[in-house]
Amino acid sequence: MTEQIVKRIKAKKVIFIKLGPGGEYEADCIEKSQTLRLGYKNVDHDLCLNGKWNLVHEYFREEENATQGVATSHTNQLKQFYEDDEKTLWLTFFKNKLWWSFSRAEIKLLPDKTKTRPVIGNWSDKNINGELLLAGNLSGKLLRTQGFRGTICKVPEEKYAIQKINNEQLKEVIELENAITKLKEKLGILIKSLQWKDFETLIDLIFRQAGWQRVSETGKTQKTLDLELLAPVTGERAIVQIKSQSDLKQFLHYQNKFATMTDYDKFFYVVHSAKKSLSEYKNETDTMLYFGDKITDLTINSGLLDWVIKRTS
């Protein structure tokens, strides 16, 4: 559909364009003609082409009975469409994705009196590394541009938009990611320092936060398992074996026991300090292995950071 771009882009300014009322022109412009397209069918094309913007303004004031501000807004939108050069980055939204392009100021009047200008190359819905620019991965400030009631407007988040297309992270995002990495390192140390009973309780709380219900009391179940769980919505049953330390030999011992327990749907083997033989094991069993980093992530995602701090302070 669109060619992968590998060169970092630069733009003098960033403009949002709504391709037709209710997106009427989107499919044609993006998937077929590779153009920008503007309505304003009743506005004289020759006036715009010759830069007679004072007369265009008068048209809106006199023929459309627009206020001074509204007439100026319409005139400016047309002026940008007709005159912006190839250094302007054009953005729009289509099929829940951000699309971008540069365009040549070669304006053509179509038979229905809409106006078009060609895209340089193709519209793209990917960053320069070929990754889709999904709306769900964009900031709310940029997405709000879709709600602009006119046709063309300057993008307030232009720096952010260019960074997303260039697959560059904001300085603040990099700093936050570094802080999160440091947090996980420290949290992992705290989890390993938990008393055994508290570690079992932490794993119990993690599974309960995920919607599982405990069927048996922690530490008082069969010798083969520490937690017996039930998923109330699906009716699935699971067992969880919890270890502070474990190696591959011990895991395989439990795995053999799990294989005989046909009344259960899922098996979890949770270890905060796995020996090298286990941590490097290529797991081809149905049992899910949760080690230190995974436990740390689950602790944060389950909102249990404060719980761990209180248990270790």
Rank of each mutant, 00 (worst) to 15 (best):
G22S: 11
Q34A: 09
K32F: 05
N283S: 10
T151P: 14
L49R: 08
T285E: 09
D247G: 13
K220P: 00
L176M: 08
F268N: 12
K186M: 10
H74M: 12
V43E: 11
W100C: 02
K115F: 04
I191W: 02
I120N: 09
L183P: 04
E284D: 09
R237V: 01
D263C: 06
L183S: 04
N54I: 09
L190A: 15
L138P: 04
Y264M: 03
K182H: 08
Y264N: 02
N76T: 08
A105I: 09
W196A: 12
E131D: 02
T285V: 04
L190Y: 14
A11F: 10
G219L: 02
A238T: 14
R149D: 14
F258H: 03
V173S: 02
G20R: 14
R237T: 08
N127I: 00
G140V: 02
V308M: 03
N178V: 02
E157M: 13
G188C: 02
N127A: 01
Q163Y: 05
G20I: 10
M288T: 15
C29V: 01
E24I: 03
F94Y: 15
K159S: 15
G23M: 11
K186N: 13
R311L: 13
P21E: 14
Y269M: 01
A71N: 03
L36E: 10
G150M: 05
F258K: 10
K95V: 03
A135P: 03
R104Y: 11
L289A: 09
V56W: 00
K7T: 12
L38H: 03
M1I: 08
K154A: 07
L225N: 03
H57V: 02
F94E: 04
A11Q: 12
Y264G: 05
L36R: 04
E3R: 14
E31M: 11
G292M: 04
T218F: 01
A259G: 01
E24M: 11
I5Q: 07
Q255G: 01
N122P: 06
L225W: 11
R237I: 07
K18R: 15
L252Q: 12
Q77M: 15
L78H: 12
L187D: 01
S273C: 08
K275I: 00
G188F: 06
K171L: 08
F251H: 02
F16A: 13
N167E: 00
K192I: 04
E83L: 13
I239L: 15
K10Y: 09
V14D: 00
H253I: 03
V215F: 10
L138A: 06
I242C: 01
E177D: 06
Q80V: 08
I9W: 09
V43A: 14
F60V: 13
D247Q: 05
E185M: 14
E86D: 11
F60H: 08
E24R: 11
R104C: 03
K141I: 07
E175K: 07
F199V: 01
N76V: 10
I9C: 01
E106N: 04
A179L: 06
E185L: 09
R8F: 00
L194Y: 11
G136E: 09
E172T: 06
T181W: 05
G235A: 07
